[in-house]
Nucleic acid binder design. Sequence first.
DNA 1: TCTATTATTGTATATTTATTCACTCCATTG
DNA 2: CAATGGAGTGAATAAATATACAATAATAGA
Lengths: 154, 154
Amino acid sequence: MMKYQRHAKILELIANHDLTTQEEIIELLRKEGFDSTQATVSRDMKELGLIKAADSKGNYKYIQPKPANSSSTTKHLLILNQAVVGISFALHTIVIKTHAGMAQAAGAAIDHLVGGEILGSIGGDDTLLLICQSEENAQNIVQRLKNFLKIGAD
Amino acid sequence: MMKYQRHAKILELIANHDLTTQEEIIELLRKEGFDSTQATVSRDMKELGLIKAADSKGNYKYIQPKPANSSSTTKHLLILNQAVVGISFALHTIVIKTHAGMAQAAGAAIDHLVGGEILGSIGGDDTLLLICQSEENAQNIVQRLKNFLKIGAD
DNA sequence: TCTATTATTGTATATTTATTCACTCCATTG
DNA sequence: CAATGGAGTGAATAAATATACAATAATAGA
């Protein structure tokens, strides 16, 4: 039952490679020790919301679409940027340090931004724990959160 | 050569319907007087950057991937960029050359983008006349239109 | 105008992706 | 401990999409 590790790996793969077909994804997955078929990858793409899009040069590749809803997403990004002081992780647990009293708000914002990949979160006063599905998944989410903080907006 | 009208219509269709396959798009296009084949629609989707994505309920449909911020403005910019071949002006009159058959669509897009400063517009097949309030105004609008073309282009 | 070049399109086909069906693996419940 | 039900999967297949090629139409240039 490697589904969630595989999902995390797929997200990582499409972030780092230009992948045109599901067959290419299968190949790379195999190199990483995941043996899957095209049917499974097709279902993964659907569940992860990944899409095949044409870039400006006219080539297709799989991407993770940017969060769509601007108004609420923008608000959450704003909260996140105001709240978060630091991010680290160990195994499948992400530890987020915030300014005093803002952990809860940061948790809600992250829930919105990252969505279902987080199993659960526990917020204290200035610390937030996110429990992920796997170490790989945690690493992937940390990367995305850091991107949110850098960009600041969408 | 209905390509650009068809593009505009496709954008309108996917904004107003949940379309799952290119065949469905072809059907609706036919009702609007556009007779196309799947191959052509496939190419249109690529050129317009439209993609098939899974929504939260697990259904696929075609969407315009960055719809959020100013969807109608984005659409108008797209049309404008596809339509316009050249811009010039004399006195208080702007002359816009477009691809054949696109003058009307360009006129509508420009109306939206520039708004009330234009006294009126007359569109033929591949030429659009904009009547402005003054020569300075015309010059200013020309500059803004050229900026639109720069931005929207890719 | 006429010719050369480029764009657009359809047909047929190849490629790619989604789904159906059957099976396995677990967890739950009677 | 069966029996039941649901999630995950692969194999095969259906469905959908992209593209090679040929034809036609548009455009530019002489």
